[in-house]
């Protein structure tokens, strides 16, 4: 006899996001989607938004790690962006996950009914939805990280049960959030994130007040139903999504060019910052192209490199493996400028 189980009903939201309970509060209105702040209502945190957008425009960048203090809306930004671009919450790998759910297992309820069926693993689900989100990624257990690295680096998931085995091609962007107070990430996993963003608390009082306003307004929407401002926010989200999709098409179509001189500059900047290996150079070029596409340009320039270096390179320095900091500094900006050939 099987009671309950994980296959809860689809909630009928865009994308059929599963919600296994009666909802956030009995009697609360349906706001048409999971209760995450609209992307256009997020105040500040420009770096995180830029990095997520670049990774969307050029998926080969390889995802984003958002690191920051408590209460800086790291998870909200990540979830809200995914909700805007896909209509779904991202496939989430929680820190309580066991390996059978990550790599795949048999469908136990079906087995108990006498049927042989496999259950889609989180990694397969992420492969089909193109994003795997890991909240508190630095709290993942070691053997889970190993499983993840194995699949991310090979692009193959081997699912083996009893006497059967199958290989699945999986490819997804890794999006993670972490609070560095709770420990760092292993360099191997850190290197798998294309971009790194450090989020900080907004200190300007007006900005803080605006954050309060948006949060409270969204609370109201969740309790009393969509307001005009909320509908406008969703409309703004749709516009932004269309813009980003347009930029993505530019990349897919090869409509953005990376001149030879700029390509050399990518290598020069990566070397000047002390990036280990060549992944930094490649990602820097891809991110510069995405940044150019994001602003509608058809040629990537040194300015695009300058804009994205702070996301691409800080976690690729050799010093990271020796306990060094991944914080981007003004000195790093100066190093980039020098490598780009600026006078000042």
């Amino acid at each position: 006899m099987f009671v309950g189980g994980g296959d809860g009903p689809d909630v009928g939201q865009p994308g059929g996001e599963r919600r296994d309970t009666a909802g956030p509060e009995t009697g609360s209105p349906d706001i048409g989607r999971p209760r995450i702040l609209p992307y256009s209502w997020i105040i500040g945190q420009d770096d995180a938004r830029t990095a997520l957008e670049l990774s969307f425009i050029e998926p080969r960048i390889g995802g984003v790690l958002i690191s920051g203090q408590r209460g800086t809306a790291k998870s909200t930004v990540a979830r809200s962006f995914n909700l805007m671009t896909t209509g779904n919450l991202p496939v989430t790998l929680p820190i309580n996950a066991t390996d059978d759910r990550i790599v795949g297992t048999l469908d136990v309820p079906a087995l108990l009914e006498g049927r042989w069926a496999e259950r889609e693993s989180l990694l397969e689900e992420a492969g089909s939805r193109k994003v795997l989100y890991v909240d508190e990624v630095n709290l993942l257990d070691d053997h889970i990280v190993n499983l993840l690295l194995d699949v991310v680096s090979t692009g193959q998931l081997v699912v083996a049960h009893a006497a059967t085995e199958r290989r699945v091609e999986v490819s997804f962007q890794l999006v993670g959030t972490m609070n560095p107070e709770e420990g760092s990430l292993r360099p191997q996993l850190l290197d798998r994130f294309g971009l790194l963003v450090e989020m900080v608390t907004e200190t300007d009082i007006d900005v803080r007040a605006l954050i309060l306003e948006r949060v409270l307004e969204f609370d109201q929407v969740c309790r009393t139903g969509p307001t005009k401002a909320y509908r406008l926010a969703l409309r703004a989200d749709r516009r932004r999504k269309d813009q980003l999709k347009g930029a993505r098409v530019m990349i897919t179509d090869g409509a953005v060019v990376l001149p030879d001189a700029v390509r050399v500059q990518c290598a020069r900047v990566a070397a000047a910052i002390g990036a280990v290996g060549h992944r930094g150079d490649v990602t820097l070029a891809r991110a510069a192209l995405a940044f150019a596409a994001r602003r509608g340009a058809d040629v990537a320039t040194a300015e695009d490199i300058r804009a994205v270096a702070r996301f691409v390179l800080p976690h690729r320095r050799g010093a990271i493996s020796r306990g060094g900091s991944a914080t981007w500094s003004e000195a790093d900006d100066a190093t980039v400028s020098k490598a780009l050939g600026d006078d000042g």
């Binding site: 994980g6 296959d7 599963r18 296994d20 066991t98 059978d100 759910r101 048999l106 136990v108």
Partner: peptide
């Protein structure tokens, strides 16, 4: 996501 079961 544990032990073959999933809940969101």
């Amino acid at each position: 996501e544990r032990d073959g079961f999933s809940c969101r």
